[in-house]
């Protein structure tokens, strides 16, 4: 359940950013969550519902952009969709792979009031 820590970090960022801008309420929050970031979305949703209660994020619309995983094979330089860490390069079957996309965990933007 590290998802709760992640949600708490999002709350922290949202509270700080909204305070900087003198906001009383957050209407919308946009997040980027990569496929390989290690976030289980059902656990994330569960943690979210509990954690945002009585905060500026309670009632805020949550927009999540899911970023698909993308790997680069260090042997044959193929770029391919990457859904698991243990799958080999689909071109040369080697495992020396660098993750290009999918590790993202970001707060993109807030709409404040």
């Amino acid at each position: 359940m590290h998802e709760l820590s992640i949600v708490m970090s999002i709350l922290d960022i949202a509270e700080k950013e909204s305070a900087k801008n003198n906001a009383v309420q957050i209407d919308e929050i946009e997040l980027e969550i990569g496929e390989l970031s290690g976030i289980d979305m059902p656990a994330f949703d569960f943690a979210w519902q509990q954690a945002v209660k009585s905060t500026k994020l309670e009632g805020a619309a949550r927009i999540v952009t899911h970023i698909p995983g993308e790997g680069l094979c260090m042997d044959c330089e193929a770029v391919f969709p990457m859904h698991q860490l243990y799958k080999p390069c689909p071109v040369c079957s080697h495992h020396f792979i660098t993750i290009l996309k999918g590790k993202e965990l970001r707060v993109k933007s807030l709409v404040i009031n």
Partner: peptide, 13 residues
């Protein structure tokens, strides 16, 4: 209403 571009890693802290 204001849009704030946060662009911050959640694990930044």
């Amino acid at each position: 209403k204001t849009i704030v571009a946060v662009e911050k890693d959640i694990l930044h802290e």
